[in-house]
Simulated assay, not measured.
Amino acid sequence: MLETVAAADAVPLAVVERSGFVESRHVGIAVVLAPDGTEAARHGNADALILPRSSLKPLQALGSLTAGAALEGAALGLATASHSGTDRHVAVVRDILDAAGLTEDALGCPPAWPGDTATRDELVRAHAGPSRLRMNCSGKHAAMLLACRASGWAVDDYLDPAHPLQAHIREVVERMTGEKPAVTAVDGCGAPVYAMSLSALARGIHRLGTASERSPFALHRSAGTIVRTVGENPWTIDGPGRPDTVVAEQLGVFAKGGAEGVMVMVAPDGTTVALKMLDGSGRAASVVALQLLADADALSATQAADAASRLALTVTGGGHDVGAIRAAIGQ
């Protein structure tokens, strides 16, 4: 059976400190690409296979866009997102479905509560329940449905790996990463997700993050549009006060986290980070990625620290701050 990186091939990436005591450690693998795409640093076996989970969404959105989905502005941002399910997010997803002539019943993602606590509380008070629209992947699914409508493909089975849309997305992923997937798995939202090396994911995200809208190649023009659009609408990629949105708003960094401790970031100069926490926890992923960008001089130490201060990294005890989650690469 194929599997991800072994413990022996991972390295320390972060620690959790409580009252000056290192209570927990997160180990994993990471790779840093320079602005020109060459490898600048690696930590652990970056050639090990991973499932990118939602960090693959920017490439899946690129597939939907190039398959004919007429997406721009907030709608294109939502196609790349793991959104927090606020009413603002849901309104955009409805707009995408309306453009496809479909309702939320066509979404193949499972019903879910919103990740945004205030929105969830409002729904509970209104005696409402989980819905497909609130599921964090609903924008990606709505974009896939719109692409199917544009190309004349069936929508009932749009998540089947053999469906023309999924075949197209897989081809786009292969072209951007330069690697054929080792395994096709089922993501938490029901869409196909592809096992690839962490290095391949980094290459794909770097190519997307550094693409120009003036490129002679349509695929790269579309990739450049995605990154610009998310930068102009950072609330779409995640949600108010949430890590990917904070990093985009404060630093202009394109960031996309994925389940099971995956994170990718592209700094404005093109420096790219991809990492995977071996234990599957994502709580330290953003701060580690920021530190790796700072180590590569793509961000200043002050910029990285200021952004980290806005993330949920504080360890509390008795209602007081007693420690923090921090990057500890190689320690």
Rank of each mutant, 00 (worst) to 15 (best):
L2F: 15
V22D: 12
T229S: 15
G280N: 10
A307N: 07
G270D: 07
Q291A: 14
A324T: 12
S24K: 05
L51R: 11
L251H: 09
A126L: 10
G239H: 09
P35N: 04
P12F: 01
F217I: 10
T316Q: 04
L123T: 08
S24Q: 11
V288Y: 14
E3G: 12
M263K: 13
A143K: 00
T119R: 15
K256F: 14
D321R: 14
V315A: 07
D306W: 13
R310H: 14
L62C: 06
M144G: 09
M1G: 15
G241M: 08
T271S: 14
D187F: 14
R42N: 02
L62V: 05
E260H: 15
T86S: 09
G282F: 11
A10T: 13
G108W: 12
Q303V: 10
L76H: 07
A106C: 09
P234W: 13
W153R: 03
N45L: 08
A8Q: 11
A128M: 15
G73H: 10
G317W: 10
G224Q: 00
G115K: 10
S222Q: 10
A259P: 07
A294H: 05
P111Q: 06
V11P: 01
V315C: 07
R25C: 05
C109S: 06
W153G: 04
L299A: 11
L107R: 08
S215K: 02
V246W: 09
D47S: 05
A296C: 09
A143M: 00
R125I: 04
A167Q: 15
H127V: 10
L76I: 09
A8N: 06
G282E: 03
P243W: 13
